[in-house]
Amino acid sequence: MDLQIFALLAQDGITNGAVYALLALALVLVFAVTRVIWVPSGEFLAYGTLTLAGLQLGKASGIAGMLAVMAVVAALMEVAKAIRQRETRHLARSLAWWAGAPLAIAGTLHLVAPMQPPFVVQILLTLTAVTALGPLFYRIAYQPIAEASVLVLLIVSVALHFALLGLGLWFFGAEGSRTPPFTSASYEWGGIRVSGQSLLVVATSLALIVALALFFNRTLYGRALRATAVNRVGARLAGISPTFAGTLTFTLGALVCAFCGVLIGPITTVYYDSGFLVSLKGFVAAIIGGLASYPIAAAGALLVGLLEAFSSYWASAFKEVIVFTLIIPVLLWRSLTTHHHEDEE
């Protein structure tokens, strides 16, 4: 292998690693706050790419339809809850939140999509629409069983993963999509070519990671999410509602996944079922961080990205095998070094 190929592979690995790092971050966040192992995160990623690809063609019916259906279901659940608790004071507000907002986003998509707005607007619309799905899925699938065991939450996640696959096929179709590159620029440094696209992906990933770090360390809501992750009972006693924390967490998680979907769009062709494999790699990174540490998870993501890139050169047929085999020594190492402690619940 000469330096040229090495640089190319490293570049590939780092670019993919940046996306895996974002995914790992979302997975760690969602697990720490809500104890949900978020299997369907990959579908959110795929929806991100496919929605943007649809908007390129002036279509947004898939995601808009999905938002509308979810909004109606969430609204019905809110009404049922109000009737059950004989408590209608907050109903207007929660209906505005759970049905009004997503329907408004769906309506905007429906109206704006055929106008073929500029690329930046399309990206913003994509992020808004896919992000809105996050809290809706939390409201419908996880909030009613928020106190259930990790296993039950995992089973629901797996079910949701298959449901979202089906819905993805229905709403977006079976064809794969690729979005145009953000930039076609490329730079030369000492004979090594670096694509602007790669630089952009790494830079925006880093920017989002820094923004999230600032959010968790500097803002009251960010600290409230950390507090919920550290001590659920303590957080409730301080007046931090687990429902609020869960909703905010899934909003952030969906935003990060949608962002990944947009970033990955120009790099690879995405089908309705492509997300799972990508999110599994993010999951490997998250496991390296013990589903708890963000910096270790990010480092793990970089390792996964590089390993994937170099194994695709030396043993491309075994690329996925090598990446996923990584989890075995990691689990072995973790089980030997971490002391077992009982679930806090």
Partner: peptide
């Protein structure tokens, strides 16, 4: 039920 891995100031603020 304190937030053990957070600072005293963070605990109070929360």
């Amino acid at each position: 039920e304190l937030f053990a891995s957070m600072t005293v100031a963070d605990n109070l603020e929360l």
